[in-house]
Lab assay of single mutants.
Amino acid sequence: SEEEEEEWRRAKERGEEIIILGILWKPNDEEAERRIKEALRRV
């Protein structure tokens, strides 16, 4: 969703871990980033 995407962007800017759509994303975690982008597209 729009607000999840916004939340994720803010976490990326701050360089902090975030759990979004049930996926743990850490800074520079390209695999998780790809999965999150896929999940955001499906929503």
Rank of each mutant, 00 (worst) to 15 (best):
R10A: 09
E16Q: 11
N28G: 15
R9G: 04
E31P: 01
E33N: 06
I19T: 12
I19S: 05
I23D: 00
L24Q: 06
E3V: 14
S1A: 14
E30F: 11
E7G: 08
A11R: 06
K26V: 11
W8G: 00
E31F: 05
E38S: 07
G22F: 15
K12Y: 13
G15V: 04
I23Q: 01
L21A: 09
E38K: 04
E13H: 07
A11Y: 10
R9C: 08
L24I: 07
E30R: 09
V43T: 09
G15W: 07
W25R: 00
W25E: 00
R9T: 08
R42L: 12
R41F: 08
R42N: 09
G15R: 06
R9M: 10
P27W: 05
R9E: 10
V43H: 14
N28P: 04
A39S: 03
E38T: 05
R10I: 08
R42P: 04
K26S: 11
R9Q: 11
E4M: 15
K12F: 12
K12T: 06
L40E: 01
I23H: 03
E17K: 08
I19W: 15
V43R: 15
E13Q: 12
E17H: 09
E31S: 07
I18D: 01
P27M: 03
L40T: 00
R14N: 11
I19P: 01
R34S: 11
E33I: 05
E6N: 09
W8H: 01
R10N: 07
R34C: 15
W25T: 00
I23G: 01
K37Y: 12
W25G: 00
R42M: 11
L21S: 03
E7K: 15
R14K: 12
I23Y: 00
A11K: 04
E6P: 04
A39K: 08
R9H: 09
L21T: 02
A11H: 06
L40N: 00
E3L: 13
E31Q: 07
G22S: 03
R10H: 08
K26E: 03
I18G: 00
W8S: 00
G22R: 00
R34I: 08
A39P: 00
I18K: 07
E17N: 10
E30M: 13
R34L: 12
E33R: 04
E4T: 13
L24S: 07
P27Y: 03
N28F: 12
E5P: 10
R35H: 06
E30V: 11
I20A: 01
E2I: 14
K26W: 05
A32W: 02
V43C: 14
E17Y: 10
E31Y: 06
N28I: 01
N28Q: 08
R35L: 13
P27Q: 03
D29T: 01
G15L: 06
K12S: 05
R42H: 08
A32R: 02
R41K: 11
E4G: 11
I36W: 04
K12P: 02
R14C: 15
I23F: 03
V43D: 07
E33S: 07
L21M: 14
L40H: 03
I23E: 02
S1K: 12
E17D: 08
K12D: 02
L21K: 06
E17G: 05
W25I: 02
I20C: 12
I18M: 04
R35W: 06
E5L: 13
P27N: 03
A32V: 04
I19M: 11
R42K: 12
R14V: 08
K26M: 07
E30L: 13
D29V: 03
R14F: 07
E30S: 09
E38L: 04
N28W: 11
K37F: 12
S1G: 15
W25Q: 00
S1E: 13
E6W: 12
V43E: 12
E4L: 15
R34G: 06
E31N: 07
R41Q: 10
I36D: 01
A32F: 01
I18R: 04
E2W: 15
E33D: 11
E6Y: 12
G15D: 03
E5I: 10
I19G: 02
I19F: 12
E6V: 06
E5S: 07
I23V: 06
R34M: 12
N28K: 05
E13K: 09
L24R: 10
E33M: 07
R14L: 11
G22L: 12
E38M: 05
E16I: 13
R10Y: 07
I20N: 00
V43I: 14
E7R: 15
E16N: 07
E17V: 12
G15T: 03
I18L: 04
I18Y: 09
G22E: 02
E4F: 15
E4V: 15
S1L: 15
I20V: 09
R41Y: 08
R35Y: 03
A32Y: 02
R42E: 08
I23T: 03
E16K: 10
L24D: 00
R10F: 06
K12W: 14
E5Q: 06
E6R: 06
E4Q: 13
E4K: 10
I19V: 13
I36T: 02
A11E: 02
E38W: 02
A39M: 12
E30C: 13
G22W: 10
E5M: 12
R34Q: 12
K12L: 09
A32I: 04
E16W: 11
E31H: 06
I18T: 09
E4W: 15
D29K: 01
I36N: 00
K37D: 10
E30K: 10
R34D: 06
E38H: 04
A39F: 07
I20Y: 05
R10P: 00
E5A: 08
A39W: 07
W8Q: 01
E4D: 13
I18H: 03
L24N: 04
R34H: 07
A11L: 12
E38R: 05
R9V: 08
E16A: 07
E6T: 06
R42Q: 12
K37H: 11
I36P: 00
R35P: 00
S1I: 15
E13M: 13
K12C: 11
I18Q: 03
E5V: 07
E4R: 11
R41M: 09
I36Y: 02
